[in-house]
Nucleic acid binder design. Structure first.
Lengths: 339, 339
DNA sequence: TGAAATCTGCGAACCGGTTCGACGATTGTC
DNA sequence: GACAATCGTCGAACCGGTTCGCAGATTTCA
């Protein structure tokens, strides 16, 4: 293994001079700098990450905590992860991926051992076990997902309230008076997936405001339960003319269910989902949807995190809670209800 | 920050004694060991990862290279990643996730800086740019995906040839004589996605052997192209009675296409896909499929990698190339062709 | 011309662990 | 009772970087 000592010897200078020549933190004559750079190239020198971390207390690694819980829709998580990973790399950071179910234990391990300079938490719950650990950690943290208590952390999320209102208003404007909202499985809500009831409560309130009947129900996460539950739902509310899906698995299952019932969208039923456009195109989800912008959220979280890591001042700056405004992507799956 | 020096002082011993008490690499009296352990608990000591890496040349981190290339089906990759991550953690390793498009450059960065003890490469191409770098690296590597040259590396993959033969034989046994095979986009093949033509070539050969006509075509990766291409395909081969899908996006798009054409599975058309069961259930893919076993493959790769990392002898053991046998999961989407 | 300021580079210390060699105290053996 | 082996602990060196303080050489300016 080639060390900075080897480089220094090859360039005929001391280790410290070699270090300064490479970092530029002190003035070094052009000639010596050239000799050092030549030696680096000739020997193929790359600094040892562990040694550098020890000396500088900087690892240039960001921890990414993504929990894949039962009944959670995993593929959506991937989009957040890629947003985080790409942005981190652009800013010079690598990503340590942590998927352990036991999130707070894992978080403690990562932070205490100083493996990372900062952390991004995905899928943050209302009362997330990981947050006390994160607040106590010496590294800054950014969240994707809104917890009950945001103190001491930067938080980014889709404006799910507005998303819920948009869904209802969109249908109301078209003339619908009875809607069904399919949320994530109850399981997810009980675990603290706040975004589920943030959207749902706002939708219910807006429905009341507009004089629209809204049936809010929990969905399922996979077949065969998800198909069955959609059938049961349509049986139960035969007069509903619009369907709102805050549940990706339900959106994927719906085309077949409607086919089996001989229903056509939007003639017999109007449908709006909530997922990313990329997702819709890859999975052929044919419904208009509220863009959930996972890549943007991941990107925002990392940007803010790195700002905090790199500026001394940033550490003290006020914490932000930022919501991305939902946008409706029209895929022609809504229309006026048939009379 | 609490260091081993603090622990030693609190326990009234030297740093080396504290270290030995914790590692157990030398005999330490029960009493001293107790004092050290108490101090660790009381002070909340966790070893600094960078310092330990520097001293031991072991990071306890595995690098996971997952490239998300244009036209590749990203969500499938997630399943491999989770298999790798879970298994790594079970064996005491963390995972550094690298998603850069420029794979060989990224790989060099990771290996040269000694950030990881070993590497898992996903989505390995026929003539993968990353392999020369990996072979030259001081860390061992394991691949998921079969390249042209496996020398010096452990390789794990689904037996795509057998998968191709199984698909054809299954249809042939049911009495089909004309089939269509939809592969990944041509783009993926050109880039070196060998698994595509491994399956396709084997299927074509088996079809010849069985006297079955097989139309092999490239598919698309997302809407609206994928839907259009399926329609075009069914227009072009109206007498085909069976569809083989080595393309997840096509499998997701098919239900709607068939609905639009008024076709029923398996009465009008028999369909077999190639994806994981988990995937089928989450996305409501209703077709019988060859299980691609991504979690198993990820697990196998990590197991072998860790074996090589941890045993001196393992380094010299012969390299393995292991194929997972495909299994057909029956979802009742195939039947005898209508006469 | 001399003192002060600037420019370059070096040596040493440090980051926080691990590990080797040595050494005093016990224990065991003949 | 003398000598060897074993046990338990310590000090020092080392891993590979970074950074501080210092000093010789050169330049600047009065």
């Amino acid at each position: 293994m080639v060390t900075i000592g080897d480089v220094a010897r090859a360039a005929g200078v001391s280790r410290s001079t070699a270090s300064y020549a490479l970092s530029g933190k002190r003035a070094i004559s052009a000639e010596v700098r050239q000799r050092v750079n030549d030696a680096v190239l000739r020997l193929g020198y790359t600094p040892n990450a562990g040694a550098r971390a020890l000396a500088t207390s900087q690892t240039m690694v960001i921890g990414l905590l993504a929990q894949f819980l039962e009944d959670e829709f995993a593929p959506a998580m991937l989009e957040y992860m890629l947003g985080v990973s790409d942005t981190a790399r652009e800013l010079g950071y690598d990503v340590l991926l942590v998927t352990e179910a036991d999130g707070d234990k894992a978080l403690r391990r990562i932070t205490d051992s100083r493996m990372v300079d900062g952390l991004v938490l995905l899928n943050v719950a209302q009362d997330d076990d990981r947050l006390p650990v994160l607040r106590a950690a010496p590294q800054p943290g950014a969240l994707v997902g809104l917890p009950g208590d945001c103190s001491g952390l930067d938080v980014f999320d889709l404006d799910f309230e507005e998303a819920g209102r948009m869904m209802v208003d969109h249908m109301h404007r078209l003339g619908h008076h009875e809607l069904i909202l399919v949320s994530q499985p109850e399981h997810v809500v009980q675990r603290g997936g706040a975004y589920v009831w943030r959207l749902q409560d706002a939708a219910l309130q807006q429905a009341r405001l507009r004089g629209v009947t809204l049936h809010a129900v929990f969905g399922e996460s996979r077949q065969p339960a998800v198909g069955r539950s959609l059938h049961a739902l349509l049986d139960r509310y035969p007069s509903a003319t619009g369907l709102l899906l805050n549940n990706e698995a339900a959106a994927a299952a719906l085309p077949t269910v409607l086919h089996e019932r001989g229903l056509t969208v939007p003639d017999d039923l109007s449908v709006i989902g909530r997922y990313s456009d990329e997702f819709a195109r890859v999975f052929s989800l044919p419904y208009s949807s509220i863009e959930s912008a996972p890549d943007r959220l991941g990107r925002m979280a990392v940007r803010q995190l790195v700002r905090r890591i790199e500026s001394e001042a940033g550490r003290a700056e006020p914490y932000v809670v930022r919501f991305v405004a939902p946008e409706l992507v029209d895929r022609k799956s809504t229309a006026a209800p048939r009379t």
